[in-house]
Design a protein around this nucleic acid. Sequence first.
DNA 1: TTGCTATCATTTGTACACGAATGAATTTGC
DNA 2: GCAAATTCATTCGTGTACAAATGATAGCAA
Lengths: 152, 152
Amino acid sequence: MSGKEGLLELADVQEPEGAYHLQDQVGFLLRKANQRHLAIFAARISDLTPPQFAVLAKLHEVGDTSQNQLGNLVAMDAATVKGVIDRLKARGLVGIGRHEADRRRLLVSLTAEGRAVVERLFAPARAVSRETLAPLSPREASTLVRLLARIS
Amino acid sequence: MSGKEGLLELADVQEPEGAYHLQDQVGFLLRKANQRHLAIFAARISDLTPPQFAVLAKLHEVGDTSQNQLGNLVAMDAATVKGVIDRLKARGLVGIGRHEADRRRLLVSLTAEGRAVVERLFAPARAVSRETLAPLSPREASTLVRLLARIS
DNA sequence: TTGCTATCATTTGTACACGAATGAATTTGC
DNA sequence: GCAAATTCATTCGTGTACAAATGATAGCAA
């Protein structure tokens, strides 16, 4: 509290950029952007969550796969993907069976209903992406997507 | 399956941009970017989660506030912020008390230890942001932050 | 073979995250 | 000044998310 160190204050502080502003941190902004996206998704696709849709979409793209493999493809850890698949199975959108050659693996596949559901949702899902990016110009939107991919 | 409609196919499809690629959707990228940020945060600040740190940082910035107010400031819903504050309280980092004038409100405040902890973490928290953005040039990083803020 | 190691799935425990319902206290509209 | 609407906090239920521990199976090496 003496005045003598006053002139050195700015040089001494550990925080070179001044006060910490939560609102400017990437992590906080990522969480908020995610929140808004979630809300838009829920508004347009009320009967499925984004992770559930991701699993169905991936399954549609690559065909039958093991649970772990599917988890890698949609960036979910083993415990998480199990929960998602359990719920999809309970609703009859996917089926599971044991792998022939490797009895550790669980083979996940789209049911006819699951296929119908996911194909019907591709258009709305695109609309979700569009609406999420709506505050930006097309050029800005593609920049954002490109940069996000780089830090993922 | 007849060949007659072949020439009209592209005009008829509901999906103007071809196949749906999960990896290109903003929502999927936001989730993955968030994941990477979470991992970086956990590696550098192992004893606190990002939401917990956000609450402490905000409390440090604005002083004592009600639980709901705090929730608004850190973009958490009432039920979520309650859980976060409960855990911080259990660890002695925040204290709670009833508001004088408005007995509905719960007044949340930093304890001395909470203040010490959050002040010690500002520098590591900055490092988390830096590392998250490390794959980008400084210019790209600031573009990303700006665009993220716009869609939040 | 025997054992070492790796992989796949499951379970448990903790921590967000949010909708919906509830109850208490305050504010408002008239 | 009182009834209606609002606000604040809590609780419940569901759904991610991930670390860590466990058990089963497979592949590899000596």
